[in-house]
């Protein structure tokens, strides 16, 4: 692997289960991402996506294993890893500016008011909330609240942005606009982003890599799907791209059937070397950690094989 900016190394999370035993949400879980990448995790509800994200954020601790970010094992939360919460988690007694400024002044404690304000304002402008600085969260629509959440996360210029289903509570129109916004900002700033979603199209539009998780308990990272669509892609004409349906069908197939049967069908799954697939391309498989395997067959747009 080239650059492991984020490296989740063999983490497990267990909870005390009913009747004195333990429930293992997942174990021996490995995942890595390069700097500047946008990774999306897709999996059914309850498989442990939020748990992975919270461990990455430092809000939760793994029962086993470590997480390494930028060459250092993480310990607790950090200003390097900003979280955008699903419920936006704005402080309701602060204004828009107050919420963003709270983050800014937490990162740069010596800055004076004017400097904090100017910095916060820049990020409020960036997410298109100019003019609403002095409103309280209760006066904002759901989409605007989530914009404030994004501005707050971006304002501390984190190494990684962590988003837990950030748009799932929004209507389709607002969601679309915010997806455009997030993609623009991430491309402009080269932001490394780790996001949970259950919206397949959202993942296809935003992600460079899509991580597919099987159902819990005992969930595993089944495979890594590399997005074959070009970097310059528009949300509106995404579906016109020749690889779009192959990619989408692959993910939907996984969610509908393979996420359930994976554990039974794939017996030689190596959680440390999860297979990488690029649906839609001439069946081209990148086995994790090895060179590209060009296959001579040409399945074209058909569903690619993912088994070894």
């Amino acid at each position: 692997m080239t650059d492991k900016f984020i490296s989740i190394e063999g983490i497990a999370r267990r909870y005390p289960g009913a009747g004195g035993g333990t429930t293992t949400v997942f174990e021996d879980f490995w995942l890595s991402m390069a700097r500047g990448e946008f990774g999306c995790v897709i999996g059914h509800s309850g498989c442990g996506k939020t748990t992975v994200l919270n461990i990455l954020a430092g809000l939760d601790e793994p029962s086993e294993g470590t997480v390494i970010v930028d060459g250092q094992g993480i310990e607790g939360t950090s200003l390097d890893r900003a979280v955008i919460f699903q419920s936006h988690a704005l402080l309701p007694w602060r204004t828009v500016l107050g919420n963003v400024a709270y983050a800014v002044s937490s990162k740069w404690r010596k800055w004076d008011r004017a400097r904090v304000k100017a910095h916060a304002q820049r990020f409020i402008d960036l997410v298109g909330l100019t003019g609403s600085e002095h409103k309280h969260p209760s006066e904002l629509s759901g989409g605007m609240k989530q914009r404030v959440g994004i501005a707050r996360a971006l304002s501390i210029t984190p190494k990684i942005m962590l988003m837990d289903e950030p748009f799932s509570a929004l209507d389709a129109l607002t969601r679309g606009t915010l997806q455009d916004e997030v993609r623009r900002i991430c491309l402009e700033t080269g932001q490394t982003t780790f996001m949970i979603t259950h919206d397949v199209d959202e993942a296809i539009f935003l992600a460079d890599k899509i991580f597919l998780m099987t159902n819990g308990p005992g969930a595993v990272l089944a495979e890594i799907v590399e997005n074959p669509l070009p970097k310059e892609r528009g949300r509106i004409d995404l579906h016109r791209h020749p690889y779009y349906y192959a990619l989408r069908n692959h993910i939907v197939d996984f969610l509908v059937s393979r996420s359930k049967s994976f554990a039974a069908e794939v017996t030689d799954h190596d959680p440390r070397h999860v297979p990488t697939v690029r649906p839609g391309l001439p069946d081209l498989m990148i086995a994790s950690g090895t060179e590209l395997h060009h296959q001579t067959s040409w399945p074209g747009l058909s569903r690619p094989s993912t088994s070894h």
Binding site: G58, T77, F85, S87
Partner: peptide, 24 residues
């Protein structure tokens, strides 16, 4: 979630008490 906001921003215990817990 408000406590978590303070935690991710590395806000210390005293500042957290005054800026998050007290107003809430």
């Amino acid at each position: 979630e408000w406590i978590n906001v303070a935690r991710t921003l590395e806000v210390g215990t005293v500042r957290r008490a005054f800026t998050v817990i007290l107003p809430a």
